[in-house]
């Protein structure tokens, strides 16, 4: 229940946060809403020596219309994403999923950037980023770079973020009326998905999976099958192609494969693929 001691540094600007991260060394961690990091620290599964608090950087909390895309600041809270009219209109899949994360209290504090940067394969938002081919903006000592979501998640809780980089913005292509579906399978509403599927059908199809690998992943087999004209049921049979879903207290890998097939089929049917 009680975290280990750490040095606390509060950043007053993005530039300062990047500097502090650099100074903090390997055990420095970024603190935004804290809803990914603090639970680990309380169980002493994580004991960072320096916490750089960016929670006060209001300039990173926004939703902007970027023409063909929506730009969402990394410190925008889940509840704000969920309740945003413009998100609801232009990227309704994102608004919907933001309302499915954790519970209301978590959504009041947790941030979109924190959730994505944590790189947890069991989180919902990374799948949305993948399915929509979102673009992530990372800021570091040498400036800003853009990374496609499909290149961002590199391993278990590992991402393309360098040690001294900060995720600042996520750009979601507007859906423009495309149909979509999010299927979250869990036992209790507050829990992480045992398996989840985000799907969007807009000419081509984007299908991504929650908790089906050591990182957030695309259902590449499904996307390829759809591109080749497969029916939802035929495409869904490829849900776990090339994947090694985890086995844990909730479910075996074998059952996750089965669930992925069912949920992908349902998602594609709902998204009108």
């Amino acid at each position: 229940m009680i975290p280990s001691s750490f040095e606390y540094r509060r950043a007053s600007s993005l530039a300062e946060a990047i500097t502090m991260l650099g100074e903090g060394g390997d055990d420095a961690k970024l603190l935004a809403g804290g809803h990914s990091l603090l639970p680990l620290m309380k169980l002493r599964l994580a004991s960072p020596t320096v916490l750089v608090d960016i929670g006060r950087l209001r300039e990173l909390s926004y939703v902007r219309d970027g023409g063909d895309h929506l730009a969402v600041g990394a410190l925008t809270r889940h509840a704000d994403v969920h309740n945003s009219d413009v998100v609801g209109r232009e990227v309704p899949l994102l608004a919907h999923v933001a309302g499915q994360i954790g519970d209301p209290q978590v959504r009041h504090r947790g941030t979109i950037g924190g959730s994505i940067a944590h790189g947890d394969p069991a989180s919902d938002l990374p799948a949305v980023c993948l399915a929509l081919r979102a673009t992530l903006l990372l800021a570091g000592p040498s400036g800003e770079r853009q990374v496609p979501a499909i290149e961002f998640f590199t391993g278990f809780l590992e991402t393309a973020l360098a040690r001294d980089e900060v995720l600042t913005e996520i750009r979601f292509p507007k859906l423009g009326g495309a149909r979509w579906s999010f299927q979250k399978f869990n036992v209790r509403a507050q829990d992480w998905a045992i398996v989840g599927v985000a799907a969007v059908r807009n000419g081509s199809a984007g299908v991504a999976l929650v908790n089906m690998a050591d990182r957030p992943v695309l259902a590449t087999g499904v996307e390829a099958a759809l591109a080749a004209g497969a029916s939802p049921e035929e495409a869904a049979a490829h849900a776990s192609d090339g994947l090694e879903p985890p086995s844990d207290v909730r479910a075996s890998g074998e059952y996750r494969r089965h669930l992925a097939t069912v949920l992908v089929r349902r998602a594609l049917e709902e998204a009108g693929a």
């Binding site: 169980l43 036992v187 209790r188 509403a189 507050q190 829990d191 207290v249 909730r250």
Partner: peptide, 16 residues
């Protein structure tokens, strides 16, 4: 014990 927290030991909420 694999279910030592309320994340893994599934006490239900109103939603269930």
């Amino acid at each position: 014990l694999l279910t030592s927290t309320m994340i893994d030991y599934l006490v239900p909420a109103a939603s269930e």
